[in-house]
């Protein structure tokens, strides 16, 4: 199963990064959001660390919706989905493969978003950055697990992006809150409650939705029309 997932992820990354440049759209949308929100500051004013972290995660969330739509639409063109369903591996391999590809793409996008939020929103990275980096990874894993599960639900649908974001965003709230709090600490804000409890919430979310992905994915990714 892991081998099949790996091949699927490698194929998807190749299609998105090398051919077609599918990530560009997601990147541009995220950057645009960061820039537009930078307009909420007066000249010479800097945004609060928490505000900046919120905008960073908002950009990431939108980017994630586009990424998973793109990943699942790859199989819609010539119904390759059926081909994946026929492969001699559990269908969860598709969930894992798409999740891995999505995680890599999201991390790549954040590699751009992070400096962009520092620049546009006038932040600087504080001493708490190592724990924030760990947190970033934990949150991204959860986003990828849930995104890979729900990304499959819009298969064969028009208006996928809006549908996916409506269902996905509210479910992501615990992760986003965790990301924002710890992220704002990295942008040098005080965090009296400490990062550990937030990491606990993010880790619990990851575990829960990895489990949900494994159990529920086979229902949602099927050949039945």
């Amino acid at each position: 199963m892991v081998a099949a997932s790996w091949h699927i992820a490698a194929k998807d990354l190749r299609l998105c990064l090398v051919r077609g440049g599918g990530l560009v759209q997601a990147l541009l949308l995220g950057l645009l959001l960061l820039f537009v929100f930078s307009l909420s500051q007066q000249v010479g004013e800097t945004m609060s660390a928490q505000g900046a972290a919120a905008i960073f995660w908002l950009s990431s969330a939108f980017c994630q919706v586009l990424v998973f739509n793109m990943l699942y639409s790859l199989e819609e063109v010539n119904a390759s989905r059926l081909g994946l369903l026929l492969m001699p591996a559990p269908v969860q391999a598709v969930w894992l493969g798409k999740g891995l590809a999505g995680l890599v793409l999201l991390l790549l996008a954040q590699l751009i978003f992070l400096p962009a939020s520092v620049v546009f929103l006038g932040q600087h990275i504080g001493a708490a950055w190592p724990q924030a980096l760990l947190m970033l990874f934990l949150v991204d894993v959860g986003m990828a697990a849930l995104g890979s599960l729900l990304g499959a639900l819009s298969q064969g649908q028009a208006a996928r992006e809006s549908l996916l974001s409506i269902v996905l965003f509210p479910l992501l709230v615990p992760l986003l809150l965790a990301g924002i709090r710890v992220g704002s600490a990295a942008f040098a804000a005080a965090m009296p409650e400490g990062a550990a409890s937030w990491m606990g919430i993010a880790a619990a979310f990851d575990a829960l939705f990895c489990g949900a992905g494994i159990v529920l994915f086979s229902f949602i990714y099927a050949g039945d029309d």
Partner: peptide, 17 residues
């Protein structure tokens, strides 16, 4: 699937809030 995923999210939403 959404109905199941949504409900298991409730405790986490509450805790994080």
């Amino acid at each position: 699937v959404v109905g199941v995923a949504a409900f298991i999210d409730v405790p986490l939403v509450f805790l994080s809030a």
